[in-house]
Structure formats: C-alpha cells, structure tokens
C-alpha cells in the first residue's frame, strides 16, 4: 500500500485533480462505449423482433 489512509489516497499527494480527472475520463469513456454497444444491440434485436412479428401477423391476415 502506497498510502497510509483513505483520505491520503484521495488526495494523491496533491495531484488529485490530475490523477482523478485522467482516470475518471478514461473510466467514463470505457463505460460509455459499453453502454452504447449494449443499447445498440438491444435496439437492433427489438427492431428485428418487431419486424418478425409484423411479418407473422401479415401472413396470418392473408390466410
């Protein structure tokens, strides 16, 4: 452990704003890409399912 206490860990020896902003932006971007990929996948599958249902019901109406 390089720090004696949690508050010292947060202070980063006076470099807190730099260390935490760099790490924060990185974490935020990584999480945002994951979130975006998941939202994209969900939306696509939802759209495909809707299309399949519509095609089914259209076939049902025709019969």
């Amino acid at each position: 452990m390089a720090f004696d206490s949690f508050s010292e860990f947060l202070a980063m020896g006076g470099h807190a704003p730099y260390v935490w902003s760099a790490w924060g932006v990185t974490a935020l971007l990584l999480l945002a890409t994951v979130w975006h990929a998941r939202a994209e996948q969900r939306q696509l599958i939802k759209g495909l399912k809707r299309r399949a249902r519509r095609a089914n019901s259209a076939r049902g109406n025709a019969q």
Partner: peptide, 16 residues
Amino acid sequence: LAFAPADYQQGNSFRI
C-alpha cells in the same frame, strides 16, 4: 492507483 509506489520524481501524478 493504491499499491504501486509513487514515482521519485513525479510523485503520484505518475499514476496517470
């Protein structure tokens, strides 16, 4: 962030 030692020259900003 927590366990690696600080840099002798740059201190904790080195963790970037």
